[in-house]
Amino acid sequence: MVTIYDIARLSGVSKSTVSRVISNHPYVSTETKSKVIKVMQEYNYVPNSLAKQFRQKKSKCIAILIPDLNHPYFSQLVKYISADCYKSGYKTVVHQTFLNKEIEREVYTQLREYEYDALILTSSTLSEEEIAENTRNKIIVACNEDYRGDYFDVFCLNEEEVTMKATSHLISKGITKLGFCSDNISSPLQKARLKGFILAHAKKGLKHNKSLLFNEISSIEDGIMLGNSLFKDNLKIEGIIAGSDFVAAGLIRSAVSNNIQIPQHCSIVGFDNHPISLVTNPQISTISNHIPDMSNDLVNHIVNKINGVKQPPIKKVYKGEFINRNSS
């Protein structure tokens, strides 16, 4: 059976070009289109159902772009979004970028070529302007990251406010040697958290310690390694705002190994209210991120847009909740 890849090879063009010919895309030269159609006719090639969807410009499929599925937050986010899409009659395809710009741009190309009806963007290495330029008015909704919302719809948590609240809680207990963990400080989300951390200090007339800002800390193992460097010889820190409950769990594991009592010697606050926060000893104080509500809202919104509802870009911000447990 002849496939689209065979047609591309025999025509001397890319698979994407063949897809554009099938979908009657305007950006294909008459000469190229004629060459591809001639090969298709010669080999009696019948486009499959996906190609028919290209022609109809509907795939009933939504792409989800994430940096790494191994990250506990993103695996949880994908779980809810995929379930909500399925309930609405849409399949999902998950693309991991691993923070690679070229991989990300390839997915945007697929969106432009109607392989997906819409794209849900959870994180990006590009600016908002670059994302808009690459997606060219196709349906894209961002969640998780705190983008301005000038070019596409945004659903996100108020990271700055809730991080300030958690930091203020620790400062109110007399804790001033405070650390802050991020997994990628270049992202808008992490920048918002850091801003909240700094503002909490400023409101109390304090300066944060720049030597206690830790980047690329995202896993249990990272938390253990960071904890060992802080706790092994002497206590260099009184409290830590961790980037996730998994990092917090690693810090607690390290504290136990180094005879550091939590929270008596060091208070720890996690993020995401993941179930792991309930199984450590002590249980982890954390921040609720409202993933279920955000997922439901953004999927309903994106389906409405696919069905032709027109409106300017919206930005919906959710209020986080600081959950005070035994680690702080």
Rank of each mutant, 00 (worst) to 15 (best):
Ala132Arg: 05
Tyr116Pro: 00
Lys138Trp: 00
Leu119Ile: 04
Gln96Leu: 10
Thr122Cys: 13
Gly149Tyr: 06
Tyr147Arg: 10
Thr97Leu: 09
Phe155Ala: 06
Val154Met: 08
Ile131Asn: 01
Asn158Gln: 06
Cys143Asp: 01
Val107Ala: 05
Tyr151Val: 04
Glu102Pro: 00
Glu128Arg: 13
Glu161Leu: 06
Thr125Leu: 10
Glu128Ile: 14
Val107Glu: 10
Glu106Phe: 09
Glu159Asn: 11
Asn134Trp: 09
Asp153Trp: 05
Asn100His: 15
Asn144Met: 11
Ile131Gly: 06
His95Lys: 14
Asn158Gly: 00
Tyr116Ile: 07
Ile120Gly: 02
Cys143His: 02
Val94Leu: 08
Glu159Met: 09
Asp146Asn: 14
Ile140Val: 15
Arg112Val: 15
Thr97Ser: 03
Lys101Ser: 07
Asn137Cys: 04
Asp146Ile: 12
Leu119Asp: 09
Arg136Leu: 13
Leu157Cys: 03
Thr125Gly: 04
Asp153Cys: 05
Val154Tyr: 08
Phe98Met: 10
Tyr114Ser: 05
Cys156Phe: 06
Leu121Val: 03
Tyr114Arg: 02
Ala132Leu: 01
Arg148Pro: 00
Glu128Cys: 14
Glu102Ser: 13
Arg148Ile: 15
Glu128Leu: 11
Val94Cys: 06
His95Gln: 09
Ile140Asn: 01
Gln96Asn: 10
Val107Thr: 08
Leu99His: 12
Thr97Phe: 06
Ser123Pro: 02
Asn137Ile: 05
Ser124Gly: 06
Phe155His: 12
Thr122Arg: 11
Asp153Asn: 08
Cys156Met: 05
Thr109Ala: 08
Thr109Gln: 11
Asp150Pro: 02
Leu126Phe: 12
Glu102Asn: 14
Phe98Val: 07
Val107Asn: 01
Ile139Ser: 07
Asp146Val: 08
Thr135Leu: 08
Thr135Pro: 00
Tyr114Met: 01
Ile140Lys: 05
Phe152Arg: 09
Asp146Pro: 04
Leu119Cys: 11
Val94Ala: 09
Val94Gln: 07
Leu99Glu: 04
Glu145Leu: 08
Gln96Lys: 11
Lys138His: 11
Glu102Gly: 02
Glu145Pro: 03
Ser123Asn: 11
Gln96Trp: 02
Ile139Val: 14
Ser124Leu: 14
Ala132Gly: 06
Glu104Leu: 08
Cys143Ser: 13
Asn134Cys: 14
Glu113Asp: 12
His95Thr: 15
His95Phe: 15
Glu145Ala: 03
Leu119Pro: 01
Ile139Lys: 15
Tyr114Pro: 00
Tyr147Asp: 00
Leu121Thr: 06
Tyr151Cys: 01
Glu104Gln: 04
Arg136Asn: 04
Val107Asp: 01
Leu99Lys: 12
Glu115Gln: 14
Arg112Cys: 15
Thr97Asn: 03
Asp153Gly: 01
Thr135Ile: 13
Asn158Arg: 02
Leu157Ser: 01
Glu159Arg: 07
Asp146Cys: 09
Ala142Val: 08
Gln110Asp: 05
Tyr108Phe: 11
Glu129Thr: 11
Lys138Met: 05
Glu161Asp: 08
